[in-house]
Design a protein around this nucleic acid. Sequence first.
RNA 1: GGAGAGAUGGCCGAGUAGGCUGAAGGCGCUCGCCUGCUAAGCGAGUAAGCGGUUUGUAGCUGCUUCGAGGGUUCGAAUCCCUCUCUCUCCGCCA
Length: 425
Amino acid sequence: MLDARKIRANPQAVEQQLQKRNLSGALDQFLLLDEKRREVLGKVEELKKFRNTSSQQVGKMKKEGQDPSELMEKVRLAGQDIKKWDEDLKGIEEGIEKILLNIPNLPHESVPVGPDDSANVEMRRWGEPRQFDFEPLAHWDIGPNLDILDFERAAKLSGARFTVYKGMGARLERAVINFYLDIHTREHGYREILPPFMVSADCMLGTGQLPKFAEDMFKVQGREMYLIPTAEVPLTNLYREEILEAKDLPKYVTAYTPCFRAEAGSHGRDTRGIIRQHQFNKVELVKIVAPETSYNELEKLTANAEKVLQLLGLPYRVVLLSTGDLGFSAAKTYDLEVWMPGYNDYREISSCSNCEDFQARRANIRYRPAPKEKIQYVHTLNGSGVAIGRTVAAILENYQQRDGSVVVPEVLRPYMGGLEVIKRQ
RNA sequence: GGAGAGAUGGCCGAGUAGGCUGAAGGCGCUCGCCUGCUAAGCGAGUAAGCGGUUUGUAGCUGCUUCGAGGGUUCGAAUCCCUCUCUCUCCGCCA
């Protein structure tokens, strides 16, 4: 959520920023209502002031044995007006809230301006894509061939966009989860969290999934609860409605969770394999930090995500998203794209964002910079550290051998009971 | 599922025969004093949101807020209704 006062103080500047995200005129209605709000607010407050002082007067008069009935009648009438104006005000404020909740974050000045992902900027590459002396297969062939991924039975259970992992496939998924959590908690200073996988609508509002993207999520029948589309939601909302102490910052938290996405509007895209699923696993990184440190923290967070790919020996590139490709809550985002031989291309495996105070304002996460100082909103960051299913897909494709077997990356072997090669059993 | 108790400021915790309680007291924190250092002690200060005033800050000022929403009343933390959450006991259950 944007700062209403900031918009009011300089609407043109904010409007300009929003235009970079292909939005225009988003503020007109806000400015109109905002003006009206202050007008009505003035009236209500004046009436309330009268009521407050008069009520005290009534008390005094009664104590002194005077007859306050005339004043009481006046206040009673004022009360009726107050009720009317208050209802007006409530309607206006709901309107403002609705507008504000639907406006995306402003892009950071370092973000390239462009209409869509074509304007994204590649920052760096790591690792060399392997040269195969045979035709590499895609993971949706490798997996079933090894009998470790089963798409047909998954469809029988749950329909399209689900996968059953079997044997060493399941083990590999679990190995990657544990490996990632171990690295981030031991080497990168994150605290492991195991959050609920269902959360309230308030949480979804706090991180920006609601109210705009309801159709992307799975809602629990008969309850105001949703299956989390990413652990970013529970992790960031951990501190919702809290005032943190400066000494508690920064907070680094990480969690493994399954993620549930309706994938509405992506029919026909990535229908094969485990790249785009209704349910997938992810290890997420979230940081709650002091505002002045957040861009430095974004670089560090991105480096943390990169590190696990490096340890796995998976080639990747880092892409800075343009204004046209930026997510709703983000001010700046780096995507990590891993090399996938089956696609002969890089595919997104992580997205690391600085949301600045956008989520903090929605979720009301604040901190006191120093004793006696005014409290202010924290900055929140999140990043995949990284997607598990896509990691497994990348491992299968990058580490496949001519005979159809897959070499287990060395760092994962301790998590696989020492297994070096996954072969068909 | 049944029975009961509760929800107050950064934290703990008073406060119901409705008014002078934004809210006692304590802790924490800040500043000052005291002190060889530390500890202890003494004094003062210390909620948030939204407006107005101001170039902006500070300051001053108004309104709101004692889980949420609604009601009664001239006036509600205090009375009534609904809801949410927490805790205890019983039952059931992984």
